[in-house]
């Protein structure tokens, strides 16, 4: 018994727990926000904001000189809103298609971000690697310490606390604004005719997206977060029959992706964040295959389908 305990390193176990907890929260927050991106057909805006957030983080750090949590959050939210606003303005003023204006804005912001990272590599605690993969494996080592550096209590990883705060904000926002978000998402013109300010809710959602991506940044990097935003939510969209079930399903898929991804990463000795994103995709593929098979089965066994599915 005692020998087993000795070979089983307790601190390793704690590290894994921190990593898994952080990844779960990241995936859950992304899935919740992603549901609305999918339903509002703004998947590409999610892509754009997650890229731009890099610039927000770098600028916030360079201007303020600290990497305090709230500075990062503020920088990311501002740049996220600027991305959304600039894409829309460009679309309106220059009459470019909206996806083209999104593409122009986010590639520019992301490029500036990458250039700044390369320029100040020594000063910023960031490099090209972590922009891409995030550093979820290192998350447990960057901890928040309460009180004195030497004597204070270690409260656990910084990234964990950040995503916990953001997850709470996302959850509360969705709970409180659920009915409005549903109406605005389902039928914008009805919402307008009921006197609801759809512009406000648009930017509200963009703020949530920016906050979620920046909180996920440490863990999964700027680009993989797109997979977590879009794929679980899209999988849930395939199955769900109400908004509530879609939200639950998206979260469930995201959690499955975390566990599966963690296992794959352990097995292949590869990057954890990338493996989680890949497993989200694999789960979606599996779901798609099952749906197609059941469609075939229904076609074959029932001459006339029992319930009419729009085709």
């Amino acid at each position: 018994m005692s020998t087993l305990f000795q070979s089983f390193n307790l601190s390793d176990w704690v590290l894994d727990l921190w990593i898994l907890a952080t990844a779960s929260l990241v995936a859950a927050a992304c899935a919740l926000v992603g549901v609305f991106l999918i339903l509002r057909r703004q998947a590409l805006m999610g892509d754009a904001i997650s890229h731009s957030v890099l610039l927000g983080i770098v600028l916030a750090y360079l201007i303020s000189g600290t990497n305090a949590l709230w500075v990062m959050l503020l920088g990311a939210v501002i740049i996220g809103l600027v991305t959304a606003w600039l894409s829309e303005t460009l679309h309106k003023v220059s009459r470019l298609q909206s996806d083209a204006s999104i593409g122009i804005v986010f590639t520019l912001f992301f490029s500036i971000g990458v250039i700044l990272v390369s320029l100040y590599t020594g000063q910023i605690d960031l490099d090209q690697e972590c922009v891409l993969y995030g550093e979820i494996a290192f998350v447990p080592f960057d901890t928040v310490i309460w009180g004195d550096m030497e004597t204070g209590t270690d409260l656990g990883p910084r990234a964990f606390w950040l995503i916990l705060i953001v997850f709470a904000v996302v959850l509360i926002s969705l709970l409180v604004g659920f009915e409005r978000l549903k109406t605005v998402t389902f039928h914008p013109s009805l919402a307008v005719s009921l006197g609801i300010n759809i512009t406000f809710w648009h930017y509200f959602l963009m703020t949530l997206v920016s906050m979620t991506t920046v909180a996920s940044f440490d863990a999964v990097g700027a680009i993989l977060v797109v997979a977590l935003l879009i794929i679980p939510a899209a999988t849930a969209y395939l199955l769900a029959r109400s908004l509530k079930t879609m939200l639950w399903l998206a979260v469930a898929y995201s959690q499955m992706a975390v566990w599966l991804g963690y296992a794959i990463a352990f097995w292949l000795n590869s990057a954890i964040a990338a493996a989680i994103a890949v497993s989200a995709g694999l789960l979606m593929g599996l779901t798609l295959v099952l749906i197609q098979l059941s469609k075939q089965y229904h076609k074959r066994t029932h001459a006339h389908p029992l319930r009419q599915i729009k085709d």
């Binding site: 998947a43 680009i223 993989l224 997979a227 990338a274 994103a277």
Partner: peptide, 21 residues
Amino acid sequence: DAALAITLSFFFALGLMLLSY
């Protein structure tokens, strides 16, 4: 639009996973 984002992020993640491997 979702199909584009799904393809993009899934393939990219797969690429990164293989790269890290």
